[in-house]
């Protein structure tokens, strides 16, 4: 089997909060092949972005402990010095963020911001300005020459996100991390940006780590899906398998909470309760079960193995509670916070 593009094994992340380290990510295993789109799905606070920031090495080293192994093209990233990390950020991995306006320096011309992504790694790069125009062209910006001379505030939201993509692509990285790339955009612009990301990915055979809370975006984009809850992966499968045969109670709950396929007369499934605070996360349990009110305490408090169980072809689920899980349609919908 060919070498994996990204191979993360047992990645845990702890943040120092009020003097104590608290776990935000617990033994995450994920891998991405060349040309694969992996969607990491979950609600806010699930740890999706924490994982992405670990791959980028962008956690504040004074307040964060990252353990485990993250290999990119076979090279270990955990334990790299800042200087070593700087040489690989933006070269082997490019990143796209949620809010393209705040993610661009308001006082720097678009062209300069794209050029910086190249010159920072190679001071002697030839014809940077031509390559900037080429990149703007690649991301579908028609009037590249004029746009390069503009400042971010003069562009529309969709244009800005195209610029962000151009920055991420500048050094033709093998892996692109897109953290909620369309959440701040209108739906027609979202569709354009998603199509653009897909197109580029196919053309360059890049791997994509797509972080999103939007199931529609997942269904449109992903090859593989990993569902996260409270710092752990609870389910992992190919995209069709996941949408057609979801197993874990959390995955199933999310799908039933999405209004797009529910008839107006039906009630949406509202997941009761909230994601626990970091200090209350006991990662030996399946933490989501706390939010299923009709389950027996013995089920909720049962210890669960760190490793996911294989339940099908490339389909993995955490714990065993899914085997007997049924929705209790009496309480459904009447749940309160």
């Amino acid at each position: 089997m060919a070498e994996k593009l990204l191979d993360a094994q047992d990645v845990s992340v702890e943040f120092k909060i009020a003097g104590e380290y608290q776990k935000a990510l617990h033994k995450v295993n994920l891998s991405i092949n060349h040309g694969e789109v992996l969607a990491l799905v979950g609600e806010s606070g699930s740890g999706k972005s924490t994982f992405a920031m670990s791959v980028m090495g962008l956690h504040n080293p004074d307040q964060t402990k990252v353990t485990g192994s993250i290999k990119l093209n076979g090279n270990e990233l955990i334990g790299l010095t800042e200087r070593q990390f700087d040489q690989y950020r933006g070269v082997s991995v490019g990143m796209i963020f949620q809010d393209p306006l705040s993610s661009l320096n308001p006082l720097m011309k678009i062209g300069d911001q794209i050029a910086e992504a190249m010159t920072v790694h190679d001071k002697h790069t030839q014809q940077v300005s031509n390559r900037v125009l080429g990149l703007l062209d690649d991301v579908g910006i028609v009037d590249a020459k004029r746009v390069a001379q503009q400042y971010p505030h003069a562009l529309s939201g969709g244009m800005r996100q195209r610029v962000m993509i151009a920055i991420a692509l500048a050094n033709e990285p093998d892996l692109i991390i897109a953290d909620e790339p369309t959440t701040a955009l209108d739906v027609t612009i979202q569709a354009q940006i998603l199509d653009l990301i897909k197109e580029i990915q196919q053309k360059k055979n890049a791997g994509i780590l797509l972080i999103t809370h939007d199931l529609g975006v997942v269904a449109e984009m992903a090859d593989t899906v990993a569902v996260m809850y409270a710092g752990q992966i609870v389910e992992k499968a190919g995209v069709e398998e996941l949408f057609n045969h979801p197993k874990h109670p959390y995955t199933r709950s999310l799908l039933r909470a999405d209004p797009s396929d529910v008839k107006p007369g039906e009630t949406l499934y509202a997941i009761p309760g909230t994601v626990p605070a970091l200090k209350d996360m006991d990662h030996n349990k399946d933490l989501f079960l706390q939010r299923v009110p009709w389950l027996d305490e013995s089920v909720v408090n049962a210890n669960v193995k760190d490793e996911l169980q294989q339940v099908g072809d490339h389909h993995y689920v955490r714990g065993t509670a899914w085997q007997n899980f049924e929705f209790n349609d009496v309480t459904e919908g009447e749940n309160q916070v």
């Binding site: 569709a191 529609g216 975006v217 949408f243």
Partner: peptide, 23 residues
């Protein structure tokens, strides 16, 4: 029509068709 075609569908099997329609 443009707005409607832009809504991502949860039906994975239709995504290529959706993309083509959107185009």
């Amino acid at each position: 029509k443009r707005l409607l075609s832009a809504i991502p569908s949860l039906d994975v099997s239709k995504r290529d068709a959706n993309r083509a329609y959107r185009k």
